[in-house]
Structures are given as structure tokens and as C-alpha cells.
Design a protein around this nucleic acid. Structure first.
Length: 573
RNA sequence: UCGGGGAUCGUCCAACGGCAGGACUACGGCCUUUGGAGCCGUCUAUCCAGGUUCGAAUCCUGGUCCCCGAGCCA
């Protein structure tokens, strides 16, 4: 009984998405003998982003849910845009996300021979022909949505001639663009994709896997269904823009009498304050708006990873946003919620002062040092405790002191007593200012020795607890603060403005060169994640080295004080 | 204009003829040695107009709005 309740708690019953409903139905009808086989088919022409993560979670997740299989297949049918670098990053990213294709790593280019044979078969059936029209002429013959197209003058070539010409195409006897192989369907179809679509184009270009073996390359529509068919994919899940292509997908497979997978389309992910277009992301990288594909501001998987995201949080997010056909733009706050949820559970707590303000404890002995006990993770008792050094001169956060505080400011002000976390109650006696600028450069305080550890024997309370670092013991480090890449929710959506780059947030990166961290951080390694108490979650950047530690702020903690300030500012307006 | 899709809280997803529900956000409160976390609560939605039905987000009819489609890209 108890067990049952716990199970329910862990796996709250959520209704199946529309794709899983289709699969449930297929299973009921014993379609494909109950086999479920999906695939994730990236084109190796860019880095994966959070939108791909949705698709990866869907495809691999579906296979897992139904005890089926999911292949990783590179759709490398266009050698002019594709590179080996991308297949490396893509495989890394998928693995990091936590998915495994076992021995089922495939490339569309592995099937070029089979595809060629299939094309010959279609020609022999009188359903494909070699066309001599130029690209421009093909466009002119295609017509428009309102006007039917015209047949190509080469449409009625004999099967024999088509076979010979296609063979000559393959052998490289024609220059790029001179001829194409086209399916013979219907130039008057209301679906433009059915107006004798091109199956093969001539491209004298070296392919990253097949080298110079081929100079004709298959088009997506022709290739994709065959890839699915060859691999025995049962459910071929893709995005909405391929809906119009489904009749063609079906036509090829039906004409060939080949195994026929079912194409199902869903709406791709959009996220607020970022862009998902590969082309635009490439532009940001190439024109130096960001520092590479893995810049922590990028929505790429590698960027998120470097930023400190956990794969668990991305998977939870993908699971939560669901799958539907309605186009949408998901609030990035939802992603951030799952990030914080996961980070809160797993991150060791440490203290780090980002914007240091020197504090001298007047009544603390000059040379005394003591080690105080701090809890490593209140969410995880097994994480234990550690010792942190305390001494006469400390740093606290600049924003934790105000000489003339507004209402509801609970932190340090002249005359007020607060707690230093795990240490003592201190009271501010004096603020030293720079004579010229008036900036507060140093605080003088007294401490109450009876409050060691942070509790007062007389039960008196303080309104706030501050984090701090002993000046003598602190590690100096660089911390990089990231904010959203764009200033507006939907930078790609505003067609009046035109260029999405106008919406770039000019302060999406702030570098703090002189932060002070507690000494335990000295052993932190690349990728290690921490919560800097009261400040947020941080991770060690790969730029970090023995000379200089570099941390990225993954995300702030939820900040109630910030909200109060915003409200106050609003009310004063 | 033709073809293909889609319209449910601010956002995302459910409800498949029978009390419109969940998550996030926002806003209150409790608690707190992180203004963190946790806990409790509140607000807010069926594109419009007709019809069928005891009963419609769901079925029918007619509108409106949005997205995709005329690459030898995927």
C-alpha cells in the first residue's frame, strides 16, 4: 500500500501526447508486429540546440517508453554544407544528454548505393526521368500555388534513354546543375512538392565520408523516406514544415513497394529571449557577437553545458513542455525552474563575494584565526560539513550594505546587527568613504563573541544573514555573469524591425575580474558546480587554470529582495 | 488567392459528449543561520457566430486570425 503511494508520487500519471496516442493505437492493431523504432536524423551542418534536445528526448524517450529502439542517423546528403566537426559535436551532445544509440550509428551516405538502385527501379517503372532544364527553367515550369506547372520537355524520354543518362550523370559526365533526375508525378498538383520533384542533383563536391565516389547527391525528399525504410523505422517523427512533404514521402515508398514508415509531424520548440534558427546562430558565431558555439549565452547544447546546465534539467524540461502540433513559444523561466530545481538538490554550498567590500572587525584580535563549521548542502545531509577560516579582516558583498537604506532592507546599515553565516553577529559602527568620490570603501564593525556559529545565547534575532570571506584566506577569481542574449521575448518574431540582431542585449555578459572565494574552492575542477550562497549557481569554466580560476554564473537564486526593489521603484515612478 | 496545418489561463500542456485540470509565472502567507530551499493559498482561459444535444472545449455549419509551402537546402 505504502509502496503504491510512493510510486504514484514519483510518477504522476500524465496523459500521453498525441504521438504516443498514435503509437498506442498502432500497438493495439499490432502494426509492425508491435515493434517501435524511431530515429534522430540531424544534418551535420551546425551545432545542436535546445530545440534539438526536445526532438532527441522525444525520439529516444519514445523508444525507451515502448521498449523499442532509436537510431542516430546523420542526414548527410549535401556535401557543400556538412562537416566532420559537426558530427563530433552532435554525438557528444546527445551522449551528454544521456541517450545511447548503442551500435546503431548510421549515415545517409552509407545508403547512397541502395538509393541509386532504387532510383533505377523508379526509372524502369516509368516514374522518373532525367531532365535537362536549368534550375531557373525548372522554377519557371513549376508554376505557382494558383497556376499549374508545365511539363518538362524531357518528361517523356524513353526508359532506355533515362537509364543511360542517369548512368552518365553518376559517372560525372555532366557539369554541376546540367541535369537532374526527377520523379514523374503531377505538374498540376496543388501540392508544389508533387510537381515532379528533383531526386538527384549533380554536385562535383567531395563528401566528408564518401570522398569523391559520388557526384550526384540525393535530395531530402527522396533520401529521407528511404533511410527510414532501410532502417525499419516505424515512426518517423519530424517537425511541422514537413507536413506538406508527407504525400511525397508516401508516394516514393509506395511506388517502390518498400517498407513504409509513418511520418508524424510536431511543433518545434521556441524559447523566449533567444533564437533557434541554425542560420542565425551561425551568424552570431561567425560575426563574433558571441564567443563561439559553446558561448554560455547560446541556446546550443554545448553552450548550455558550459553555462552549467545539467542534462537532467533539460530532460525534465523537454518532458514537461509536451508535444503538440500547435506552434508556441515557451517561457525560458520554465527551463530555469527545472535548472534551479536540479541544481538545488545537487550543488555543494560555498561562500564567494562577487563585489567585495572590506570589513574590519574592530574588537577581533589582530592575528587570531579560527575555523568554523559550515554545512555543505542542507538538501543533502550526506554531503557533510567543512571548515571555513575566519579572521579580523573580511569581505562582504557591496550590495549587502547601505548607508541610507530604503524600507525592507534587512541587511547591514550603520548601527544594525546582522549575522555572518556560520560565524558571528556583527554590528556596523562606521563606514569609511573615499574622500573624493564618496564611495564607501571600508566598514568597521564589532562582533559578539557569544554568538559564535551564528546563534545568540539570549535568543535575540537578526533580520538577515550575510555571506563573507576571510580576506587573508580568500582565493581571487574571475566570475562571468550572464544575462539573456536578447532584450525582447521573441527576437525572431518581430518582422517590422527586420534584423533580429537589433534586439541583442548589450549587457548579456559582465566580467567580474576580482572576486573573493572561500579557500575550499581551490580544488574545484572544470565543470564542477556550486551554489555560492545567496548569489546563485556557478560552475568552473574551461578557461580556468592554475594561475587564475574562472567561474560562470549559471543562474541566480530566486531573488525576493530584487523583486521588492523593482516594486518599490515602480511605486515611486 | 490555392494547398497543408493550428487556435484552451500571461506561458506550455491536459480534458477525446458529462464539474475545464496540471506545471511555470505573478501575487499573498507560513517557515527559515541563504530575502535560498520547503510548505500553504489566491488570481487568470475554451477565437467568433449559429446549430445538434438533457448536456459541447470536444460534434455540425459559417466566419476570423496565425503558421507553413513556388531550393538542384534539410
Amino acid at each position: 500500500m505504502t509502496e503504491k503511494i510512493e510510486n504514484n508520487k514519483e510518477k504522476p500519471e500524465r496523459s500521453a501526447n498525441f504521438i504516443h496516442q498514435i503509437i498506442d493505437e498502432d500497438l493495439k492493431n499490432n502494426k509492425n508486429d508491435g515493434r517501435i523504432h524511431t530515429r534522430f536524423p540531424p544534418e551535420p551542418n551546425g551545432y545542436l540546440h535546445i530545440g534539438h534536445a526536445k526532438s532527441i528526448c522525444l525520439n529516444f524517450g519514445t523508444a525507451k517508453k515502448y521498449n523499442g529502439l532509436c537510431n542516430l542517423r546523420f542526414d548527410d546528403t549535401n556535401p557543400s554544407k556538412e562537416e566532420e566537426e559537426y558530427v563530433k559535436s552532435i554525438t557528444e551532445d546527445i551522449r551528454w544528454l544521456g541517450f545511447d544509440w548503442e551500435d546503431r550509428l548510421y549515415f545517409a551516405s552509407d545508403y547512397f548505393d541502395k538509393m541509386y538502385e532504387y532510383a533505377v527501379q523508379l526509372i524502369k517503372k516509368g516514374k522518373a526521368y532525367v531532365c535537362d532544364l536549368s534550375a531557373e527553367e525548372v522554377r519557371e515550369h513549376r508554376g505557382t500555388p494558383l497556376i499549374a506547372g508545365e511539363n518538362s520537355p524531357y518528361r517523356e524520354r524513353s526508359i532506355k534513354e533515362n537509364l543511360e543518362l542517369f548512368e552518365c550523370m553518376r559517372r560525372g559526365e555532366f557539369p554541376d546543375g546540367a541535369r537532374t533526375l526527377r520523379a514523374k508525378i503531377d505538374m498540376a498538383s496543388s501540392n508544389l512538392n508533387m510537381r515532379d520533384p528533383v531526386m538527384y542533383r549533380i554536385l562535383h563536391e567531395s563528401h566528408h565520408r564518401t570522398g569523391d565516389k559520388w557526384c550526384i547527391y540525393p535530395m531530402y525528399d527522396w533520401a529521407h523516406g528511404l533511410e527510414d525504410s532501410i532502417e525499419g523505422i516505424t515512426h518517423s517523427i519530424c517537425t511541422l514544415e514537413f507536413e506538406d512533404h508527407r504525400p511525397l514521402y508516401d508516394w516514393f515508398l509506395d511506388e517502390l513497394g518498400a517498407y513504409h514508415s509513418q511520418q508524424i509531424e510536431f511543433a518545434r520548440l521556441n524559447l523566449t529571449y533567444t533564437i533557434m534558427s541554425k542560420r542565425k546562430l551561425l551568424e552570431l558565431v561567425e560575426k563574433g557577437y558571441v564567443n563561439g558555439w559553446d558561448d554560455p549565452r547560446m541556446p546550443t547544447i554545448s553552450g548550455l553545458r558550459r553555462r552549467g546546465y545539467t542534462s537532467e534539467s533539460i530532460r525534465n524540461f523537454a518532458d514537461r513542455i509536451g508535444v503538440a502540433k500547435r506552434e508556441s513559444i515557451v517561457d525560458v523561466a520554465l527551463l530555469e525552474f527545472y535548472l534551479r530545481e536540479d541544481l538545488n538538490k545537487r550543488s555543494p554550498r560555498v561562500m564567494g563575494v562577487l563585489r567585495p567590500l572590506k570589513v574590519v572587525i574592530n574588537n577581533y584580535p589582530e592575528d587570531k584565526e579560527e575555523y568554523l563549521t559550515a554545512i555543505n548542502n542542507p538538501e543533502d545531509p550526506s554531503a557533510g560539513t567543512r571548515k571555513i577560516p575566519f579572521s579580523k579582516v573580511l569581505y562582504i558583498e557591496k550590495t549587502d550594505f547601505m548607508e541610507n537604506p530604503p524600507k525592507k532592507f534587512y541587511r547591514l546599515t550603520p548601527g544594525r546587527e546582522v549575522r555572518l553565516r556560520y560565524a558571528y553577529f556583527i554590528t556596523c559602527t562606521d563606514a569609511v568613504k573615499d574622500k573624493r568620490t564618496g564611495e564607501i570603501i571600508e566598514l568597521h564593525c564589532t562582533y559578539d563573541p557569544a554568538t559564535k556559529g551564528g546563534d545568540a545565547p539570549d535568543r535575540r534575532k537578526v533580520k538577515s544573514t550575510l555571506h563573507w570571506v576571510s580576506a587573508k584566506h580568500a582565493i581571487e577569481a574571475e566570475v562571468r555573469l550572464y544575462d539573456r542574449l536578447f532584450k525582447v521575448e521573441n527576437p525572431a518574431g518581430d518582422k517590422d524591425i527586420g534584423d533580429y540582431k537589433k534586439f541583442l542585449n548589450p549587457i548579456s555578459l559582465e566580467i567580474l575580474p576580482r572576486c573573493f572565494l572561500e579557500p575550499s574552492l581551490i580544488s574545484a575542477k572544470h565543470g564542477d558546480r556550486f551554489q555560492f550562497e545567496r548569489m546563485g549557481y556557478f560552475c568552473v569554466d574551461p578557461d580556468s587554470n592554475n594561475q587564475r580560476m574562472v567561474f560562470n554564473r549559471t543562474i541566480t537564486l530566486r531573488d525576493t529582495w530584487e523583486r521588492i526593489q523593482k516594486k518599490q521603484a515602480k511605486n515611486n515612478r
